[in-house]
């Protein structure tokens, strides 16, 4: 039962594996990037559920607080703001590269790119 109780982490693991599997198994570069995105999102979910406190509210201290409020740990959330920025930047660079690869090779399938590279060198 304990294992089921942490179902949110099972979700994280599942998403991570889906993401990583996509990166490994798909030749299409955009699909690879989608896989990477899923992979990163899983980590964000991981941090967020780590910061969740049962019954806690948003970590904003209201007027007249007496110190007994229960609120979520704000730090993981803050960290994830940065991680989201990093993820977006990575995707942006990745997609820009895909566009240029498409211009240069006429394809975005990795096996085909590998074949062209080998023929070229």
């Amino acid at each position: 039962m304990e294992a089921l109780g942490i179902w949110n982490y099972w979700g994280v693991v599942l998403l991570m594996m889906i993401g990583l599997y996509t990166v490994i198994a798909r030749d299409h570069l955009v699909k690879k990037l989608i896989g990477l995105g899923i992979f990163q999102v899983a980590v964000i979910l991981f941090y967020v559920s780590m910061g969740k406190v049962t019954g806690g509210t948003a970590p904003i201290i209201p007027e007249g607080a007496d110190g007994s409020e229960v609120y979520s740990n704000p730090l993981p959330h803050v960290l994830m703001l940065t991680a989201i920025v990093v993820g977006v930047a990575t995707l942006a660079v990745g997609l820009a590269l895909v566009i240029r690869i498409r211009e240069a090779y006429g394809t975005v399938e990795e096996d085909e790119l590998q074949r062209q590279n080998r023929a070229g060198s």
């Binding site: 490994i24 798909r26 690879k32 990795e110």
Partner: peptide, 20 residues
């Protein structure tokens, strides 16, 4: 050699598999 299993880097998918 270039083209051999060590002399030629793997594509990203296979190297990700190695990481896993």
């Amino acid at each position: 050699r270039p083209g051999g299993p060590v002399g030629e880097p793997l594509p990203s998918g296979k190297s990700a598999l190695w990481a896993a």
